[in-house]
Amino acid sequence: MKNVPTNKSFRKKQNLKLKFLLIPLTLFLTISVIFISTFQSKMYNSNLRKKIYNSMTKSKNRITAYNKAVNLNNGASANTCVYFLSEVLRMNGEKINNSVCNTNQLLDIMKEEGWKKEKNYKKLRPGDICFTTDSKLNKYGTPSHTYIFMKWKEKGKYDYAYVCDNQAKDYDWKIYHIRNIAKVDYSNGHSKDPFSFFMYKRD
């Protein structure tokens, strides 16, 4: 007569089988998480982004870029965001012609150079290049402004951020200042168009 397994021995065997099934599953999930994290890190981390951020933490560099932008715009600080941004890129090794003066020209160059677009501002990292909507708040129109993202004003809040751009006259003459990323805002009586997307360059 064959021995009939008890409920206890049956459960033990089943638990053992379950453990053997869980080991490869856990290993697969762990490897997947590591792979995704590594890919995202590679995707959004770049030496250029870090160089841009580090250069803009120095007041001397901000002033140099601002003055060069104004000079290229015949002494006017208005509508010099692309001049300013282009000078910052030149400071950090990018080849941008001095004649580049509008967002369409800059974006064409970025696309040719392999820059990527991201629309989720929660993925912004210090040194990323932001572009706004057009003046009619159309995300598919020509961006009215471009600036450098530096950091969020408050950790975990995705509205106000520290940025660098040419609009110092609207922010108490501060090139490094706070701007609302998420929605239309006003400063010194001027409307500020909201974020549309940012550009990043992989190594």
Rank of each mutant, 00 (worst) to 15 (best):
K122S: 08
C130K: 02
P126G: 15
I129E: 02
R62I: 05
K139L: 09
C101N: 14
N104H: 09
E118I: 05
F131N: 03
K111N: 15
K68D: 13
D128A: 11
L85D: 02
T132F: 06
K117M: 13
D128V: 01
K136H: 15
G127I: 00
S99D: 07
Y83R: 01
W115Y: 11
T142R: 14
F84R: 02
N97S: 13
S77E: 14
T57H: 01
M110T: 05
C130F: 04
E113P: 00
I96C: 05
R62A: 10
E87V: 11
K60M: 13
A76L: 05
N74D: 14
R125N: 12
F131A: 08
S86F: 01
N71V: 03
A76Q: 14
P126R: 12
N73W: 08
R62P: 07
N73P: 00
K117T: 05
G93L: 03
Y83S: 03
S86D: 05
E94Q: 13
F131C: 10
L124A: 06
I63P: 00
N74L: 04
F84W: 07
L85V: 15
T133P: 10
C81W: 02
C81T: 00
L106S: 04
N102F: 07
S86N: 04
Y83I: 09
M56W: 04
G93P: 01
K117C: 08
C130Y: 00
W115K: 09
G141W: 13
K136C: 12
L72E: 09
Y66V: 01
L107M: 13
E118P: 05
T133V: 12
K111T: 07
N74H: 11
R90I: 05
G93W: 03
M91P: 00
A65W: 03
F84C: 01
T103E: 07
F131Y: 13
N97P: 02
S77N: 14
K122A: 02
V70D: 01
T142Q: 15
S99T: 15
K116P: 06
Q105G: 06
L106N: 08
P126N: 15
T80V: 04
V70T: 09
R125D: 11
N102H: 06
L85C: 11
N92F: 03
N71L: 14
K119C: 06
G75V: 08
K123M: 15
P126K: 14
K95C: 06
K119R: 10
V88W: 04
C81I: 01
M56C: 08
L107Y: 08
E118Y: 00
Q105T: 07
A78T: 13
F131L: 09
K111S: 10
G127E: 08
V88F: 00
L106D: 10
N79V: 07
K58F: 10
N98V: 14
K139N: 13
T132M: 02
K68F: 06
R125P: 10
L124I: 01
K119I: 10
D108T: 10
L85S: 07
D128Y: 09
N73Y: 02
N92T: 02
S86T: 05
N97D: 12
I96L: 01
Y83N: 13
E113L: 05
L107W: 06
K139S: 15
G141F: 00
L89I: 03
I129P: 04
G114L: 09
I129F: 09
D128R: 06
V100F: 03
N138I: 10
A69R: 03
K122P: 09
I96W: 07
T103R: 11
K95N: 07
T57M: 08
I63A: 05
P126A: 14
A76K: 11
Y121S: 02
T80K: 00
N71M: 13
